[in-house]
Amino acid sequence: MKNNMMTVVLASAFSMLAVASTVVFAGPAEDQASFQKYFKDRFKETEFGDFQNGVYSIHEDSRQQWEDIEEFPPYELAIERGEEMWDEAFKNGKTYADCLGKEVSKIRARYPHYDEKNKTVVTLEGDINKCRVDNDEKKLGWKKGAIADLSAYIAFEGRDEPVNVKRPESEGELEWYNKGKQFFYAKRGQLNMACADCHVYYSGRRVRSETLSPALGHTTHWPVYRSKWGSMGTLHRRYAGCNNNIRAKAFDAQSDEYKALEYFQTFMSNGLAFNGPGARK
């Protein structure tokens, strides 16, 4: 009896240790594996590479409609305008290529990344505006308009490059990663909902008539032409929209909160391919 008790006590001590150690060691790599497995299990019929197509990867009914739209993509004009921006020199004679590199197809997939020197996450839109400011040009608005045009051109040229955010390891990387992760899973707003509520636990279900997209692949296809907006918008514009919908205070585009969220979400989507710009309802 006493022996038995001892075994029980020891066993539970071990299992507690086991729990504690998974908590301690569950880092970005484990998070990513279980995140991706969750969606593979939840949507068995969806090919992994298809998750970059958002809700259309899991919803047959709207897929055909979307494919029809993609025949004459509503973002085409934005790409053209973006290309003009790319080719046109600033007043000082420099161009975006001097900041972002001459090989346009390689730009999109470099973002987001952590910048050790400045201890922050750098996004494509962030570097576009940095380039402008460094060359004595005015910053563009963050959410739509010219910044989305240029971003659309860069995304289009960078299609099919793999999503491959470096695994967060350094103290700074982990801090930003955890900040984004925490944001994603935290309840907020008067309606008290987390991103994960709608885009993980109830993904595939409907809010009214809207099917909820899986969070896997959320960041691959930006900027997006959204019919509801009637224009192009950046990822952070969409983030703000989802925050407003749950009556939470939206953060500014390119705030630390949204940069961290983009960093976390894109790392979760490693292994997919960039496929922007996109078209959505």
């Binding site: 309606l191 909902m193 509520d197 709608c198 636990y201 109830y202």
Partner: peptide, 11 residues
């Protein structure tokens, strides 16, 4: 729960 706390949050 995902269901909003209609009373507690003053909705």
């Amino acid at each position: 729960t995902i269901m909003p706390p209609f009373g507690t949050h003053g909705i």
